[in-house]
Design a binder for these strands. Structure first.
Lengths: 293, 293
DNA sequence: TAGATTGTTAATCGATTAACAATC
DNA sequence: TAGATTGTTAATCGATTAACAATC
């Protein structure tokens, strides 16, 4: 039960782009890339406090990782530290910023200005690091024309022109799930090659387009999984004696359950009736009939 | 870490293995747990279309993963498929739901009712799968008393009572970063053991408490990293000939740069002047002086 | 039965970590 | 110099994937 579970990729993105990209751009591992923003944030805080240098130990603590990992991560960027001394804060801020591409301007469009779109438009961290909201877009005539975060909401029809003239390469999708793929297609068609998806849908994109997703409900479900196991009386699924039984016993047990037909539905009271071919027992079935006492 | 909440699954069979179970709950890999919600979503869609069975190939496509991975994932749960046929949709929906703990009710508190808190309170996916907003909380007297998503915003002072009486074990933090750790401490003290953090801060929690974070600005920075490399005109950092040079050459180059003192600032125009001890050149320095043509 | 598809194996790949030589 | 701390190595761990025997 690791504390923090600073989820190497809280990103929760199975990185759809990674497969076809020259495996790892520049040889920097994805896991390392995902941590660079964390280091940068910690370094920025140190910088604001005018701290001149920091050791891997201190910086790692601030970023919530261990120091060996941090040093390994930095080793992919180059040798930016000084043995016996540590890292120069300002210098490292600059190097990581540059590595992440934050020394340039990234115009972004947000599509779907509902509650979440509003929240994102107002998000301070947006503008802070090179990202700039180029436009807010919505398909709903009732929303178009209103303002959010001081910007007018424009109609989807303007998408192509905005992307082209403002050189937008990053799009944020905050539409309802039903509209997400369609919006995604249109963004890609217009020239956007990186998409941050807040809609709970799997997006299909052509090669060369990166998608990352942020999914509240998935995060909550992962928490629930672990929470369920803290409570003490865990469901026994998959942890029954069956799991530790030798192969032949398991096979025999499965066969018996199949023959019996309805054992599972009995035990798991709210389970749907099993009518289809896959009606096999899971490992949490009552196996008292076939297991030695 | 044990908290006083009703046993979530008291109807389950006793678990003889619980006592000696290793830390990783049930031996299901984290990566697999993180994908279960994805499978569940795809299965739910199939269920709504009354599709009775699905093959690993079809389901994998719908979830955006490859089928070998899906079958491996499912193998951790048990044998819920039928060779030659596939998986029973309804049955699998139930099994995964139960595995994730979604067959029980999860009351959740949201702390910090700004734009994002509002958005989350209104988020449909929240209620859909066992999660229920038990309370909205804020410290600002101007916000307290207003309503969001039909619920009254209550004062932080009520936190402890709400958590205790409603058996809340999951908290969502949508406060400004400066308040996040303090709010987190208070949630933990009150008995919350799972936290979903939207504030851009690293939270420190005691053992037994899980934290997951959702961080827009980190996601954007990761996209920017990859985007930068698509553009074609990559910065040369870390990709210079130096990286491919043999050790001795690198060492010599570093030494020379150190002696020269200001080489880097020249080349990287916006780099901060290097004044501190760690003022070494990075791999993108101009090395023409020491590298063979 | 013949065809289809699962569940599992084993090879591979990538990420983490402790330890320590290099070196400031 | 002596102490401190990096950068790197190597061991380990965990995740992915293709392939295929088992079996419906």
């Amino acid at each position: 039960m690791a504390i923090g579970r600073p989820s190497p990729s809280s990103s929760q993105t199975p990185d759809p782009g990674a497969a076809r990209r020259p495996s790892r751009a520049r040889g920097i591992p994805e896991a390392t890339v995902a941590r660079l923003p964390l280091y940068l944030r910690a370094l920025t805080a140190l910088s604001e406090r005018s701290v001149p240098t920091v050791s891997s130990e201190e910086l790692a603590a601030a970023a919530g990782v261990n120091s060996a990992k941090l040093r390994k991560d930095f080793s992919y960027l180059g040798s930016y530290g000084t043995r016996g001394v540590g890292y120069d804060v300002e210098y490292l801020v600059y190097q990581i910023s540059r590595e992440l591409g934050l020394t340039q301007d990234w115009p972004v469009v947000i599509v779907g200005i509902g509650n979440l779109g509003h929240a994102l438009a107002n998000y301070g961290g947006f503008a802070s690091r090179g990202f700039r909201v180029a436009a807010l877009l919505d398909a709903d005539p009732n929303v178009v024309g209103s303002t959010a975060a001081g910007l007018p909401v424009r109609h989807m029809d303007e998408l192509e022109e905005i992307v082209a003239t403002q050189h937008v390469s990053i799009g944020v999708i905050t539409t309802p799930p039903g509209a997400a793929q369609q919006v995604c297609d249109r963004l890609v068609e217009a020239g956007v090659t990186s998409i941050l998806n807040f809609a709970p849908t799997v997006l299909t994109v052509p090669d060369g387009v990166d998608v990352r997703k942020v999914d509240l409900s998935i995060e909550l479900q992962i928490l629930a999984f672990h929470e369920q196991r803290k409570a003490g009386d865990e469901p026994s699924a998959g942890d029954s004696v069956l799991d530790r039984a030798p192969g032949p016993v398991r096979a025999a047990a499965a066969k018996l359950r199949r023959a019996a037909g309805g054992g599972k539905a009995e035990q798991a009271k709210t389970a749907p009736a099993k009518t289809a071919p896959a009606a096999k027992g899971g490992p949490d079935d009552d196996l008292s009939a076939v297991m030695p006492a």
